[in-house]
């Protein structure tokens, strides 16, 4: 399988008025063709920063170290021309917040064909229109909807348009940042179905970023869990969700109770406290202050991401202990 995306030891730090803010700290991610990789974590864990780094969309105040390779090319050092060619055509992003990412004064058609016109010169208007229609059909919208304005579409339809935009230049890698946030459960199921179908049909690679571990468990092959800028657990989606090794993953997975499970009745599980301020990370394991299994050893050094059997890994020194 070809490596579409390879992030190696990537760290991102924002320059702020109150000093540097490390948002991502030494993260490795690989996405192959035909594979769906999920990145789970709470707000502020660095997952959105990670997504924007892939196409060098991070704000100017951010400094990035490590290597970011998309389709074998180094994104961090490439020239503007190459980067422009890579965006949309090589890899594209489905942003979160479909309402705000669409231009309210343009028809759907115009938003989708913009990317095609920018990246492929000499395509006739008729051919473009045909392609926009085909794209809409691909995401489950009638081609006639290309004449609609964003406000005439429902939330789910807008999200479909966003996905059609991302597909416009036939990219081989798609990054979806919170693709189903703020959508109803039924519409969420529709969109997730659509995304998994696209991966299967087009053979693209996909990275989905979400705060909702249960959504990722549903559609992803592999899942990475981030906490305070680091990956704390990775493995196959099913294993991570149903047999979490890191106590943080366990808490995340417990937040989505299995309906019908008597153990979850009148027993919601969660963690005390809040994620740490990235500027004032605790010494040792950054999860230690909230960890239900914490011991003194945890506060000594940040635990490395330990390889477990298969493709699993967890950053906890107490993995395997009862």
């Amino acid at each position: 399988m070809t490596e579409l995306l390879a992030l190696r030891d990537v760290s991102v730090s924002y320059g702020t008025l109150d000093g540097p803010l490390p948002a991502v700290r030494g993260v490795d991610v690989v996405v192959h063709a035909g594979e769906v990789v999920g990145v789970a974590g709470e707000s502020g864990c660095g997952k959105s920063t990670l997504a924007s780094t892939v196409l060098r969309l991070q704000p100017k105040s951010a400094t990035v170290s490590g290597t970011v390779e998309v389709l074998g090319a180094d994104v961090l050092t490439m020239g503007w021309g190459d980067l422009r060619a890579l965006r949309w055509a090589g890899a594209s992003i489905v942003f979160q917040g479909a309402l705000h990412s669409l231009n309210p004064v343009h028809r759907v058609e115009r938003q989708i064909d913009e990317a095609i016109r920018v990246h492929e010169s000499g395509v006739s208007d008729d051919a473009i229109e045909e392609r926009v229609g085909a794209l809409l059909e691909q995401v489950g919208l009638p081609p006639a909807r290309m004449r609609a304005y964003p406000h005439q579409l429902s939330g789910g339809q807008r999200q479909r348009v966003m996905i059609a935009m991302a597909l416009a230049c036939r990219p081989s890698l798609i990054i979806a940042d919170e693709p189903t946030t703020a959508l109803d459960v039924m519409v969420q199921a529709q969109i997730l179905d659509l995304l998994s179908g696209l991966v299967k049909d087009l053979g693209v690679g996909m990275m989905i970023i979400s705060h909702d571990l249960s959504v990722l468990a549903d559609v992803c092959d592999r899942v990475l869990v981030m906490y305070a800028g680091r990956i704390v657990e990775s493995g196959s989606a099913q294993q991570v969700f149903s047999d979490p090794q890191h106590p943080y993953t366990r808490a995340l997975s417990g937040a989505f109770p299995r309906i019908g499970d008597p153990a979850a009745r009148y027993a919601p599980t969660g963690l005390a406290g809040d994620p740490p301020d990235p500027r004032e990370l605790p010494t040792g394991c950054s999860f230690a202050p909230r960890c239900p299994r914490v011991v003194d050893r945890c506060r000594e050094a940040e635990p490395p991401l330990l390889q477990l059997e298969g493709e699993r890994a967890a950053a906890c020194i107490r993995v395997g202990e009862p």
């Binding site: 429902s154 939330g155 789910g156 969420q188 199921a189 249960s214 468990a217 549903d218 149903s242």
Partner: peptide
């Protein structure tokens, strides 16, 4: 039944994804 079937979980009941929106 449909609402319950689309709750994302691993070993589901066959999901009944309703078309359209309310």
């Amino acid at each position: 039944k449909a609402l319950l079937s689309v709750v994302p979980e691993i070993e589901h009941i066959e999901p009944i994804v309703l078309t359209g929106e309310i």
